[in-house]
Design a protein around this nucleic acid. Sequence first.
DNA 1: CGTATTTGACCTGCGC
DNA 2: GCGCAGGTCAAATACG
Length: 313
Amino acid sequence: MEFTSLLNTSLDLNAKPLRNFEEPSLLPKQEVMPSDFIELGRNITVREEKDALIEELNRLSAENKKLTELLTVMCENYNELQNRLTSTSKHSVVDNDASRKRKAESSNNNGNTDGINGPSESSSSDEDSCKKPREEHIKPKIWRACVRTEASDTSLIVKDGYQWRKYGQKVTRDNPSPRAYFKCSFAPSCPVKKKVQRSIEDQSILVATYEGEHNHPHTSKPELTSGSSRGATLGTVPCPTTSVSSSAQTVTLDLTKPKPDTDSTRKIGTPQFQQYLVEQMASTLTKDPNFKSALAAAISGQFLQQNSQAEKW
DNA sequence: CGTATTTGACCTGCGC
DNA sequence: GCGCAGGTCAAATACG
């Protein structure tokens, strides 16, 4: 499965204006009425204005292209890693299998009949499912979520709207950061567990792995802002994809609303308005130091979501 | 004092 | 059989 086919990496920030300004056949349609000219009270000629706008658009286009190339490279790297992981997993059974078998026994002994906390965790390979056909129908829902936190925050707490009780912590071999084990404490019968561990690549990212499904509603709404209280907040559950909540500023692009300072809807759609929109969007993005990190976090969220979906298959 | 968290011990499966 | 690693338990501790 090609990941790039699933993720549209095109930002397409200035598609319309580019069409308007770059196609020569359309340029004459930019008619500037003399009355408008007088109204604007500009001293520069239409030609000079157009050249300046084209230059600015070319700059934005180049920036857009650069970002798109960056995304493409990231996707290619991801696909390469995914292929390696797939080929590796064919030669070795994942270590989840150990706990799966153990859980199968413990589940049978405890008389757990709901099957949610059943034996199978993530069955990521076809080989695995072939080995254990009897477990095919018992698949607890497993998904991952990644949350960006402050690197100095060692709490390993992910606020996702549910109430959790920590019952263990371990340092695993593949990651120097400790892994915390949580059980849902809202309902005694709720079988959901989660593991939280810092990402080995980025210590500021918490990776939460959820197992099972809640048999009760949310205890509270997930907090959408993080600040004084401890822990990271989750914008969306099960996996934050487009909304990345963090201690840093959240970048929100709302392309559905026109700018409020336009006094008349009649002007919406004019080249000047489109140019203004493009400038505002590009300016907001390029001036925001958190844009790249937020973009990377959002993409990694997409990666993890795709990965968890692939595991469920 | 009740509840949540911490943390070392224990259990289980796997590889050698 | 032994060691290792992941996961869980439960006594000790902290906290409100």
